[in-house]
Simulated assay, not measured.
Amino acid sequence: MKYTQTTLDKIERIVEEGGYLLRYEKGTFQSGYCVLKEKKVVVLNKFFQTEGRINTLVDLLPQLDIHIDLLTHESQKMLDEVMSIEHE
């Protein structure tokens, strides 16, 4: 997977289409992110560069309750690609 803004945009779209609000904020995150599952909010450290944001979202996606039927076809393909990376 390439660490580009386009890749980041596609992964962010998966999170948003899955019904989550994605925010970039500063804070004292031990892991660089915080997930408020009840409110469906994902907060990432705003100081992460593109590569860090992509890696964090790739790590987070399996933990989120995203129903594949809510996603566009393009997002479904991207989610499959991301999940296959997780299982390598």
Rank of each mutant, 00 (worst) to 15 (best):
M1R: 05
K2F: 07
Y3R: 11
Y3S: 08
Y3G: 01
T4G: 11
T4E: 10
Q5C: 04
Q5K: 15
Q5L: 14
T6W: 06
T7Y: 08
T7C: 10
D9F: 07
D9Q: 12
K10S: 10
K10L: 09
R13N: 13
E16L: 05
E16A: 01
E17F: 05
G18N: 03
G18D: 03
G19S: 01
L21N: 03
L22A: 00
L22C: 02
K26G: 05
K26H: 07
G27W: 11
T28F: 13
F29R: 00
F29C: 01
S31A: 10
G32E: 03
Y33Q: 01
Y33P: 01
L36E: 02
L36H: 06
K37A: 08
K37W: 05
E38H: 04
E38S: 10
K39A: 14
K39S: 12
K40Q: 10
V42Y: 01
V42W: 02
V43F: 14
Q49M: 11
G52K: 05
R53I: 10
R53C: 13
I54L: 09
I54H: 03
N55Q: 15
T56M: 09
L57N: 04
L57K: 03
L57F: 05
V58Q: 07
V58A: 07
V58P: 00
V58N: 01
D59V: 08
L60G: 09
L61N: 02
P62F: 08
P62G: 11
P62D: 11
P62V: 15
L64T: 10
L64K: 02
L64G: 04
D65P: 07
D65K: 15
I66P: 05
H67E: 15
I68P: 04
L70V: 02
H73L: 13
E74A: 09
E74N: 08
E74K: 10
K77V: 03
K77N: 12
D80T: 03
E81Q: 11
S84D: 14
S84T: 07
H87Q: 12
H87N: 13
H87S: 14
